[in-house]
Simulated assay, not measured.
Amino acid sequence: MHVRVTLVAAARSSSLLAERFDDDRPLDQAGWDEVQRAAHGLMPLAAAELRYCSPTPRSRATGDALGLAPLVQLALRDCDMGRWRGLTLGEAMAREPEAVDGWLADPYSAAHGGESLLAFVQRVGGWLDTRPADDGVRIVAVAEPAVVRAAVVYALKAPPATYWNLDVRPLSAVTLTGRGGRWNLRLDAQPVRV
């Protein structure tokens, strides 16, 4: 028995340099424009039997704009950044440079008072591992790019530091196939199909 989980990174709500930890802002105009341009290639995802999204406004709006009518999954929320919530990386670095350095270097560190990178990856992986294992079921989930990165690290059983080397662009998609505890990464050259 296996499932196919396609993770779609939510459209953006700000420029990359203005991204904030635990950002709850809705899609900006550029994000809406991106969804409109990408919609045709991502529309086949609406055929998935199960459709989910993270609880952020931009993930919900992206899923709705793609015609998914997704169900919110709290396990797909972004990493809990504690007292750094709402800050950019640069702002957190200006306030607590040693704490940021420690957090970036140590996957067990929760220097911000929130969730460690390892706990975040394990939470997202736990969600993956509990997806229904009906043979061939197709699942799509729209989530923050950080969640997609965490899912890939978990699925590949990669060292947590790999997280920092993954670049997930808005509206990019990755497909994981398998079942709880055993996942394969599928890279499509064509637009995503379910």
Rank of each mutant, 00 (worst) to 15 (best):
R83Q: 11
E49A: 15
L71F: 00
D33N: 14
D33I: 02
V35N: 04
Q73C: 13
S59R: 09
A75M: 04
E34F: 01
A10E: 06
M81K: 06
D78V: 09
P44C: 10
E49R: 15
A46G: 05
P70T: 06
L7K: 12
D28S: 06
R20A: 13
G67H: 10
L87T: 04
R83K: 11
A10C: 12
R37G: 06
T62Q: 02
L45G: 03
V72R: 13
A38E: 15
S54M: 05
D22I: 01
A10I: 03
G31T: 09
D80V: 10
Q36M: 10
L74P: 01
P57D: 08
Q73I: 13
S59P: 04
G31Q: 11
S15K: 04
R12H: 14
F21K: 11
G67K: 11
S13Q: 14
G67D: 04
F21I: 13
S54C: 02
W84I: 09
L68F: 05
D28I: 07
D24Y: 01
L74E: 14
R37K: 14
P70E: 02
L68K: 07
R51F: 01
C53S: 15
W84E: 06
D24V: 06
Y52H: 13
G67S: 10
S13M: 07
L66I: 04
T88Q: 06
E19T: 14
R51V: 05
D28N: 13
C79Q: 12
F21Q: 05
A61E: 13
C79T: 07
R60K: 13
T56R: 11
L68C: 08
Q29C: 00
R25M: 02
R37L: 12
L71K: 11
G86Q: 02
L87R: 12
S54G: 15
R37A: 14
L42M: 10
D80N: 11
A30L: 12
Q73M: 12
L17T: 13
L45R: 11
L42Y: 08
M81Y: 11
H40E: 15
L16K: 09
R12A: 12
L7Y: 04
P57S: 10
R83A: 08
R58E: 00
F21C: 10
D33R: 15
D64V: 13
D23G: 02
W32G: 11
P57C: 04
R37S: 12
A47P: 00
T56Q: 09
P26A: 13
G67Y: 05
V72C: 10
A75K: 03
A46P: 02
G31P: 08
L50M: 08
A10M: 04
A38C: 15
W32E: 14
A65F: 00
Q36A: 13
G82E: 05
M43P: 00
L74S: 08
L45N: 07
A46Y: 00
G31S: 07
P57R: 14
L27W: 00
D24R: 14
C53H: 02
Q29M: 08
A48E: 00
G31W: 05
R60Q: 15
Q73R: 14
P55T: 09
R51I: 05
L87Q: 12
P44R: 08
M81C: 13
T88I: 04
D64G: 01
Q36R: 15
G67T: 05
G86Y: 03
A18D: 15
L74D: 12
E34Q: 15
A18V: 09
L17C: 04
T62R: 06
D64R: 14
Y52A: 14
G86V: 04
T62C: 03
A48N: 05
A10W: 00
H40M: 08
L87V: 01
